[in-house]
């Protein structure tokens, strides 16, 4: 019979040591809002769960001069209530409001959400607009990886055996003045069919810089670089006309994950309309 156990280390050093002892059968559990349903459905069958909830250091949302560092046990609700996130990373606050339901937000964590790497995650597109990094620790040391490189596909990341994600770091100088986040989902609380985060800077009605990220029925959440570079320099009032004129958004077309219930044409049109509408909201300060 398979042996299984929940382990409750109190420090990060203990977590790493347990990881080494337990081997490949161990999984780290933070809020558990993705992992526990996966265990219940038989999609994940870990031998050991290493529970981070007794590691006090990992609950912190910490601001330095140039960054905000969100610990692995900081729940989405705590992020929503954090004045530092509200004031300094509004795009993350907008996205956090759309995460699932209050029940899930009370326990689900941002770092856990990133490690789960669901392409429909609400938080990942916002973090991509912030050029966020994930901080990984193992017995061999620390490394930080840009989220765009960390997530490789649906539910796939470059995390190595024995590594624990301890935080996500957002650079404050990457934050723009105008931001918005929107999603298309079947009902409130659902994962998005299409999600979009937009972060813009404009000067005298002209777009100075633009970051657009999308997620949903894609291989992974991505930055829409082909649109971003084309709208920089455009007058703000011409953006919607420009998006309407784009026949195909190549970066999205290449990433769409085939789905039996929704056609590629429907998904392309949905993404196009969602980007247009999110840009419009960002420009109007909604």
């Amino acid at each position: 019979m398979k042996q299984s156990k929940v382990l409750n280390p109190k420090t990060l050093a203990e977590v790493l040591s347990l990881f080494e002892q337990c081997g490949d059968g161990a999984r780290v559990i933070a809020g558990g809002q993705s992992l526990v349903p996966m265990i219940s459905l038989g999609l994940s069958e870990p031998d050991f769960l290493i529970n981070l909830s007794s590691c006090d250091d990992l609950f912190v949302i910490k601001k330095t001069r140039k960054t905000i560092n969100i610990g692995a046990m900081a729940s989405v609700s705590e992020i929503l209530n954090s004045s530092q996130v509200i004031n300094l990373l509004p795009i993350l606050n907008f996205a956090a409001k759309k995460v699932a339901t209050p029940h899930v937000r009370n326990f689900g964590t941002l770092v856990g959400n990133v490690c789960h790497a669901d392409p429909s995650s609400d938080l990942i597109p916002a973090l991509l607009c912030l050029d966020a990094q994930i901080d990984l620790v193992s017995k061999d040391g620390k490394r930080s990886v840009l989220l765009s490189e960390f997530i490789t596909g649906p539910y796939s990341t470059t995390i190595r055996g024995g590594e624990v994600a301890v935080s996500v770091t957002c650079q404050l100088d990457k934050q723009s003045k105008l931001a918005s986040y929107k999603k298309v989902a079947r009902r409130a609380g659902d994962l998005g069919i299409a999600t979009c985060a937009v972060s813009l800077d404009s000067h005298k009605d002209c777009i100075e810089s633009a970051k657009i990220s999308v997620g949903g029925y894609l291989r992974k959440a991505i930055r829409v670089l082909d649109i971003e570079k084309n709208i920089v320099g455009l007058p703000a009032h011409e953006i919607c006309t420009f998006i309407d004129g784009v026949e195909k958004i190549e970066s999205i077309e290449n990433s769409i994950l085939p789905d039996g219930s929704l056609t590629n044409n429907y998904l392309s049109a949905t993404f196009s309309r969602l980007i247009r509408s999110t840009l419009k909201d960002a420009l109007s300060g909604k």
Binding site: Q33, L49, H103, F107
Partner: peptide, 26 residues
Amino acid sequence: GIGYCGACTVLIDGKSAHSCCLIATT
């Protein structure tokens, strides 16, 4: 059983939670 319907809602330290998505021993 997967945190979608809310029938299993309880309060943990005063906060609402889906009890089907929490491991009892934690």
